[in-house]
Amino acid sequence: MQTVKVGNMSARTGEKVSGYVQVKGMDIELPVTIICGDKEGKTVFISGGVHNAEYVGIQTAIEIASEISPSQLTGNLIILHLMNRTGFEHRTMSLVYEDGKNLNREFPGSEQGTVADKICHTVVTEFQRNADYYIDLHCGDGYEELIPYVYCVGVADPEVAHKSREMAEMVNVAYLVQSPCGSGGAYNYAGSCGIPSILIERGCMGRWSKEEVKLGKEDIRNVLRYLGVLEGDVSERTYHPVDVGIVIYKNAAHTGCWYPTKRAGDTFKKGEILGQVKDYFGNVLESCIAEMDGILLYHVGSLCVIKGGSMVAYGENVNQQ
């Protein structure tokens, strides 16, 4: 008989338990499901809502928690449906309501910090400490248009990075990015601690659909089947993700109106204009010029762009070379 414990919640072999785990030192409670398999095995941590306006990931976590039963598992699932709950309930796009911080820049957090720091600290000490593997569910922010793709950890022991890549290759998306960071993000930090981890990007622009959630759930099931945690064989996929190589993230130098010239998924050549920021009279304040041949992973899809905020992210397109 095994017991999986997270905060004040616990589940024993063959049990599924849903409830709330309190953020340490706060009144905030996070919605969680623990599924303790009929057979013992590895534990997979799945999280949605690190960014609270990324609704596809949140709904995917909610539905996968409802649909998987202990009898299907050799191992355990810990599913955090919504990490940034106060941001979700105050519709703050993807920032923590109380302090305006981006959770995915604050890991591993701190017990003595602000609300965002304490959320991150709780996730590390209560959730990640139980995990053998980690799947973080994201999508484009409320103002970002993107193509589906997957990240895997890169700053980690070679064995951890290799396992993370194998997990990412089970996701039904065209492109894979290996992260050059070992902290800040939830999955980056987990990888640096020896937990093979991936981040899935699917959906965008503050919307969600049943089809996107269905694809997201199949992504999770395929990774779990590959890991031997969920019964069944890996299903057929449309894509087998390939590396995009170097990724460039460009932030705006001005606040103003954003006029993209490309859409997410478009390819382009070095020197092409990817978009422009203009003032409220139509005067060009800056142009975003491609620094290499590449493919556009995501870009701002709203008219508003904010100084210091993202304009585009693009990577090397190996299919062009």
Rank of each mutant, 00 (worst) to 15 (best):
G87R: 01
I68S: 05
F88K: 06
I289E: 14
T13W: 02
S164W: 07
A156M: 12
G154D: 01
V155I: 08
D136L: 02
T3H: 08
G140P: 07
V277F: 10
E126K: 10
K214E: 12
V312S: 13
T261C: 02
M311P: 03
L103E: 02
A11C: 04
Y175D: 03
N222P: 09
V305R: 12
N84P: 07
L230F: 09
I200Q: 04
S302C: 14
S66N: 13
V318H: 15
I306R: 11
A168R: 12
V305S: 07
S183G: 06
N52R: 00
G7W: 11
S164L: 15
K118P: 12
A116S: 15
E15H: 15
I306G: 04
L224F: 14
Y175F: 13
H90V: 01
S209M: 06
E98H: 14
E111Y: 09
H138Y: 02
N52D: 15
V300L: 06
P148M: 07
V21L: 09
S47T: 14
S235Q: 15
A174C: 06
G25Q: 02
R129N: 11
K269M: 15
V300W: 08
N283A: 12
L199S: 06
E166W: 02
Q112L: 03
G294I: 01
K269F: 12
E106I: 14
I64L: 07
Y239W: 14
N102S: 10
G142Q: 11
W258E: 11
V123H: 03
E54V: 05
D38T: 14
C152Y: 12
I198K: 03
L80W: 01
M292R: 11
D243M: 12
I246D: 12
T122W: 02
I220K: 09
D157W: 03
Q59H: 04
V32S: 01
V277M: 05
T60Q: 06
G232T: 11
G282V: 02
P158N: 05
V277H: 08
T125K: 12
L303S: 14
F268C: 11
C152R: 07
C120P: 01
V284Y: 06
E159M: 13
Y298P: 01
P241T: 09
M83E: 05
G19R: 10
E211G: 03
P31D: 01
T60D: 07
G154R: 04
Y280T: 08
A61L: 05
D266Y: 03
Q59F: 05
H138P: 04
I34K: 05
C257E: 12
E316S: 03
V21W: 00
M205T: 00
C181W: 06
T33Y: 06
V173Y: 11
V213L: 10
D266C: 04
I64G: 00
Y187G: 04
P70I: 13
S69K: 14
C152Q: 05
K269W: 11
G216K: 08
I195N: 10
V242C: 05
P241V: 03
K24H: 13
Y298N: 08
Y143H: 12
Y314V: 00
A313K: 08
V124N: 10
L199K: 09
P70F: 15
V32R: 03
I78P: 01
A253Y: 07
Y314I: 03
G315R: 13
Q112H: 13
R129A: 07
P70E: 15
A264E: 06
Q22R: 15
G216W: 05
Q112T: 15
